[in-house]
Design a binder for these strands. Sequence first.
DNA 1: CTAAAGCCTGACCCCGATGGCAAAGTCAAG
DNA 2: CTTGACTTTGCCATCGGGGTCAGGCTTTAG
Lengths: 149, 149
Amino acid sequence: MMMYIGELARRVGATPKAVRYYERLGLLLARRAPSGYREFDERSVEIVRMIRRARFLGIPLNEVREILALLEEHSRPCEHVRRLLRERRAEVAQRIADLNSFDRFLAELESVPAGESGGCAILACVDPRANGSRHAKNRIRGTQRRGCG
Amino acid sequence: MMMYIGELARRVGATPKAVRYYERLGLLLARRAPSGYREFDERSVEIVRMIRRARFLGIPLNEVREILALLEEHSRPCEHVRRLLRERRAEVAQRIADLNSFDRFLAELESVPAGESGGCAILACVDPRANGSRHAKNRIRGTQRRGCG
DNA sequence: CTAAAGCCTGACCCCGATGGCAAAGTCAAG
DNA sequence: CTTGACTTTGCCATCGGGGTCAGGCTTTAG
């Protein structure tokens, strides 16, 4: 029934460090054994599993916290999650468009014939005053390291 | 012709601090006026503009540096650059494919009907360990959210 | 000349979501 | 008891800067 942090982490596919991080952010509560070890039950497993699922979908932890708060109120967070998913899809679509734009830019550079005199003909073309320097700031949060399929 | 850091930053839509950061990372060289002020020319503008474009698209600065380093070499970079560009394009294409796949995944989740009892039916459908965690590790760069396919 | 604005270096803290490492305490098995 | 695996806390690092401060220098406009 009770388990320590290592087993919890193993069961949900996380690391003990991540679990401690979730606890520190207040997403999770852990009792303590007399030794000081954190003790978790099945409910903790479910919570952390849900955190991982949300994270897998790209939902940041502060939004996960909102979802968990809704759960605590016995409300059903589905509509909330659904809205988050819609927003996420819009971001993904925007990002795809941006990448296509960048790909066209790279393709143009590729089609530049090699120069013969000193210097690089491609470099000379890196100027296009076209677009590109509008910064969309931090709107897009995609993957960070682990690609998923 | 020559400009100080503020004008450069303004022209490319960056901040002086970011430009100093690029210089510190070796992406950019700046001459110094007798006063100590950094002096930039049109080529610097082009370089920083390209950095911003790449950053906007989620390419990390150390990879931008690889590209720029080759561009800066006046030796005979064209073939090198061309190969690098092909690799970039392949990665961009892969990233686009990943995002499209992720988008389809999100679309499927959107069609999940709302559950009635406690919990979220949508999140219940997600298994982060199923196919997502085969770690592509360093492949995906870009923004901070985690995408999946 | 003065004042404002811009620039210099360097430093420190902040964000997300961990990873890595270290010293020290605990648990379970042989 | 010993060993080794596990856990604790805590600090430093990542990436791409943003924000702010300090103290001092330069440039430019009035």
